[in-house]
Design a protein around this nucleic acid. Structure first.
Length: 212
DNA sequence: GTCGAGATTATCT
DNA sequence: GATAATCTCGACC
């Protein structure tokens, strides 16, 4: 049958739209994914795995279905699920979701968010809402007891509902060549209020050396 | 309502 | 030592 692991082992650009609408449960909170981004390996300049495996990215080269969490900007954690054939180093970044279970817990973790649609609107916010940390890297989303991933509807013929129209755009926040329109690998449910607004890569200040 | 700049630390060269 | 797959807050219209 359609093993979920088999679905995730397909190429990243096929898996990404299939994950939209899927339910991810972690640490007592469940979200419905509304926005994801695809990352590949050696042929994707925007990927952490572009330069080959390192201690941090090793899990991306392994079996599909495991969690890849990383720390960025000094204060944020982002979560991916490893996808693609073994050794392809592909992953899907969870960018946003709608909290559909455990909202009270999510609110207690995200005190700064005022509206429920902001609880998991953004990759770092989603991690906080779900209680995901660096220590969870490598966890199996399919077999673990703390995590659970479920596709919304695995029927290949029944296309997605009209309300869930899938759109694409360039990836958000990716600096360098990987952030251009050549890689329109961001997938989201158009019109969903939890999708984060698109923002081009932040052109970080080119080192304006403060005179002391 | 929109826009712009700063914060802060794991990871890699 | 430099960089980064971001978030938040303050200024201004």
């Amino acid at each position: 049958m359609t093993g979920l692991r088999d679905v995730l082992s397909r190429p990243a650009l096929e898996v990404a739209p299939a994950l939209l609408g899927a339910q991810l449960t972690a640490n007592g909170v469940t979200v419905r994914l509304t926005e994801v981004e695809a990352y590949r390996g050696a042929d994707d300049p925007g990927s952490h795995a572009f330069r080959g495996p390192t201690a941090r990215t090793r899990v991306m080269f392994g079996e599909a279905g495991h969690l890849y969490a990383y720390f960025t900007y000094g204060m944020h954690t982002c979560a991916n699920v490893v996808v693609g054939p073994d050794g392809e180093a592909s992953a899907i970044l969870f960018r946003a979701g709608e909290v559909i279970g455990g909202a009270d817990v999510a609110r207690s973790r995200r005190l700064t968010s005022k509206r429920d649609t902001d609880l998991a609107s953004g990759p770092a916010r989603l991690c906080v809402a779900l209680g995901i940390t660096l220590a969870d890297t490598g966890a199996d989303l399919l077999g673990g007891s703390h995590f659970s991933l479920r596709l919304a509807d695995a029927s290949p013929d029944a296309s997605r509902p009209d309300a869930a129209r899938i759109s694409t755009s360039p990836r958000t926040g990716v600096a360098g060549p990987g952030g251009t329109a050549e890689f329109p690998w961001r997938f989201y449910l158009e019109g969903d209020p939890t999708v984060s607004p698109y923002r081009p890569a932040a052109p970080r200040r080119p080192a304006a050396a403060p005179p002391r």
